[in-house]
Amino acid sequence: MKPASFGYVRADSLDEALGVLGNEGAEARVLAGGQSFMAMLNMRLARPRVIIDIMRVPALAELAQRKDELVVGAGVRQARLLAMPGLERTLPLVAQALPFTGHVQTRSRGTVCGSIAHADPSAELPLCLVALKGHVHLRAAKSRRKVAAAEFFTGMMATAKADDEMIEAVSFPVANGEGTAFREIARRHGDFAIVACAALVSDHGIRLAVGGVADTAVARDWPHLEGTALDDALNAFAYELDARDDVHASARYRRELVRRIGRSTIEEAARCRA
């Protein structure tokens, strides 16, 4: 499995990258850590004419808290975010979920924004971004916009990003006293999740986001339900996600996981808050 032929541009600045992207449009693709995109190239699921390597753009290496958001630039590797001092207080959900993203050997190179751009429905980082109501910061040569996570992911590996745009950064709202928990079921640790759950429990109620079932991560908000009322809500949610049978698991098994793992994740988040 070798990639088809392409030209290669190593951008030294964001403007250079955006200039090439503006000229080439859909024929160009951005390469960051490469842990998803290089596999797509090798399998020839992607055949761009030009690749724009952005990993030597200094401005994209930003990892900083701005007001009540943690901004993660497009050049920030997953290992760097995981090693950030105080991550378990700033973004406890991400600190819990990130060890499930790939393996040590892929987190060392793979970027946070790259996983968001790839938009795999079972990936942990898109799930966290949806659960936490984060934003994607998109840039083109002559425009910039900030898109809410729920609007950014439009389908399986499909996003609201236009051909001449790239992700400049993503931002996660920092923790504000809510309890959080993350759980997933996969065949092996680090494999793609069959079902992944992220729960937040706060004064306002319960928020549960589920990945691996629908075409994108999907979140629901409930008041503080307990007992059979919570079971009923989870059951309705499991059916609304419209699970399908595939080689990894049946639709029925996925619904059962949403009910059971969803409940245990919510309970763990509630305990964290208490």
């Binding site: 290669y8 390469l31 490469g34 842990q35 290089m38 596999a39 090798n42 690749i51 590797r77 290992a79 040590v104 050997q105 892929t106 060392s108 190179r109």
Partner: peptide, 10 residues
């Protein structure tokens, strides 16, 4: 210094 899959690198 980073562990790297050589097959996912140009």
């Amino acid at each position: 210094g980073m562990l790297t899959r050589a097959c996912l690198t140009l």
